[in-house]
Amino acid sequence: MSTIVSVSRTIDAPADAIFELIADPAQQPRWDGNDNLAEAPAGQRVHAVGDVFRMRLIQGPVRENHVVEFAEGRLIAWQPAPEGEPAPGHLWRWELEPVDERTTRVTHTYDWTRLTDETRMARAQATTADKLMASMDRLAALSES
């Protein structure tokens, strides 16, 4: 079984517009295809590696998301962790490649290669390409409108 799941598609929107929806955690529940995110406080827009944003899950717990890759308008990746705990080893990544001024190739990846917490394995395995594509499709609907 692969521990890296990745999907790509072209979205009819500029990279900067798409990136704003991803880099602003308050927007993420609007496009989350896993239907796992409840809310994030406003004012947490990501700007650099090392930023941490907090998100409340639908089931109630708060996750601290540690940004580990960042290039403004092009790349963002984070490792979620229970509040006040180290990241258990999974990563969410978004890569944006402008095709032209109004079209962007977007790749969404979930990588659980380094996941060590056995209690999270079933959920990681359930994060399939169709779940990632659901996020991508919702993101496209929001950014193309």
Rank of each mutant, 00 (worst) to 15 (best):
M1D: 04
S2D: 10
S2V: 04
T3P: 01
T3C: 01
I4F: 00
V5S: 00
S6H: 04
V7K: 08
V7E: 10
V7M: 03
S8I: 05
R9D: 13
R9Q: 03
R9V: 04
T10W: 04
I11F: 09
I11Q: 10
D16G: 05
D16K: 07
A17G: 06
A17V: 14
I18M: 03
L21Y: 02
L21V: 04
L21T: 06
I22F: 00
I22C: 08
D24I: 04
P25K: 12
A26R: 06
W31S: 14
G33H: 09
G33R: 06
N34A: 14
D35S: 15
D35M: 15
A38W: 09
E39V: 15
E39R: 14
E39Y: 12
P41M: 08
A42C: 01
A42T: 01
A42F: 02
G43W: 00
Q44W: 08
Q44F: 05
R45G: 00
R45P: 00
V46C: 05
H47Q: 08
H47D: 02
A48I: 01
V49G: 10
V49R: 13
D51C: 06
D51L: 09
V52M: 12
R54A: 09
R56M: 07
L57G: 07
I58F: 09
I58K: 15
I58M: 07
Q59F: 11
G60I: 10
G60L: 11
V62R: 01
V62G: 02
H66Y: 10
H66T: 09
V67K: 11
F70M: 09
E72L: 14
E72V: 14
G73C: 12
R74D: 15
L75A: 12
L75V: 15
I76T: 10
A77V: 06
W78Y: 15
W78I: 01
P80S: 13
P82H: 03
E85A: 00
E85Q: 12
A87I: 04
P88Q: 01
G89F: 02
G89P: 07
G89I: 08
H90F: 12
L91F: 05
W92E: 11
R93V: 04
R93K: 10
E97R: 14
P98M: 14
R102Y: 12
R102Q: 15
R102S: 15
T103K: 11
T103H: 11
T104E: 13
H108A: 05
H108C: 04
T109H: 02
D111Q: 03
W112D: 02
T113D: 03
T116S: 14
D117M: 08
E118W: 06
T119F: 04
R120C: 06
R120N: 07
A124I: 00
A126L: 03
T127G: 10
T128Y: 10
T128W: 10
T128V: 11
A129W: 07
D130P: 03
K131G: 09
M133E: 11
A134R: 03
A134H: 04
M136W: 00
M136G: 02
M136K: 01
D137G: 07
L139A: 04
L139E: 00
A140D: 08
A140P: 11
A141M: 08
L142N: 02
S143M: 08
S145Y: 00
S145F: 00
